[in-house]
């Protein structure tokens, strides 16, 4: 784990006068798993949306891989290497698992409409290459049995894994996971934890995730950032955060 891959400086965001994020600063080190925790409405999802350009921060700056920006388009963030999964399912539901994963590679495509229409030029080679990459990730995330199934018909837990595969296939250097275990049972959660740890360890992907389940967070992350009403109330290792009185008051102390 070396220097920071992501730095946020005094990031603020408000919706119609309501502060969602208030002068927030923190860093994510390269290669770590960083968890964002906090009660509902603390601004966690908004923060992810700023990092990959869905929202624009009112003030402050985001530095990713040494490149500083305040406003970035989602597509550009994806090209820079920011991958993303979604809290609510955002898969292409009429497409098969393979096609969903392949869609995650479209931004790497170098072929044109005419090449696609007639199967000429670089199209065939690129298709073979992309299929190989997609199948690697599908195997890596234990989705081989579902490869040709239309995703809309799959169980929720499997769909979450497809979402992860779609984000991962483009080999992002930073992966943002928005509640990857929401709505899962205990078995599915431990399976997903295993896959996230495996992604981090074997592919070296830096991961920022939002999660509510404290046992999952403590078991998974190297670094925890605690948000409450748009402010940062805790930042450190899981042990440090667990002992922080402000955090206990704001979040852990309340009955959940």
């Amino acid at each position: 784990m070396s220097g920071p891959i992501l730095q946020l400086r005094d990031v603020s965001l408000s919706f119609r006068g309501i502060k969602a994020l208030n002068a927030l600063s923190f860093e994510v080190a390269c290669g770590e798993i960083c968890a964002l925790i906090g009660p509902n409405g603390a601004g966690k999802s908004s923060l992810l949306n700023i990092i990959n350009g869905v929202y624009r921060a009112d003030s402050g700056s985001v530095t990713f891989n040494g490149e500083q920006f305040i406003r970035i388009r989602p597509a550009h963030a994806a090209h820079l290497g920011v991958g993303r999964t979604f809290q609510h399912n955002a898969l292409f539901r009429h497409l098969s698992v393979l096609d969903n994963v392949l869609a995650g590679l479209i931004r790497h495509s170098r072929t044109t409409l005419v090449e696609h229409a007639f199967g000429i030029g670089r199209d065939r080679r690129e298709t073979r290459e992309f299929n190989r990459w997609a199948d690697e990730i599908i195997g890596f995330l234990d989705l081989t049995g579902h490869r040709d199934t239309v995703v809309g018909t799959l169980p929720y837990g499997v769909q979450k894994r497809v979402d992860l595969a779609r984000a991962l296939v483009g080999r992002p250097s930073l992966l943002l996971l928005d509640e990857p275990m929401a709505g899962m049972n205990q078995d599915e959660k431990s399976e997903m934890s295993r896959l996230i740890l495996g992604t981090n360890a074997r592919l070296g992907t830096t991961i920022v995730l939002i999660e509510h389940d404290m046992s999952v967070v403590m078991g998974l992350s190297h670094h925890v950032v605690v948000l409450d009403y748009g402010r940062k109330v805790g930042d450190g290792s899981p042990e440090q955060v667990r002992k922080n009185p402000d955090v206990i008051a704001a979040y852990l102390g309340t009955a959940h």
């Binding site: 990959n52 869905v54 989602p74 597509a75 994806a78 090209h79 991958g83 993303r84 979604f86 955002a90 898969l91 292409f92 539901r93 009429h94 497409l95 096609d99 869609a103 995650g104 479209i106 931004r107 779609r166 984000a167 483009g170």
Partner: peptide, 15 residues
Amino acid sequence: MAIRDMDTAASVIGI
């Protein structure tokens, strides 16, 4: 088809 099924997700993943 990605645009048809979910255009916001499509733009976020760089389509």
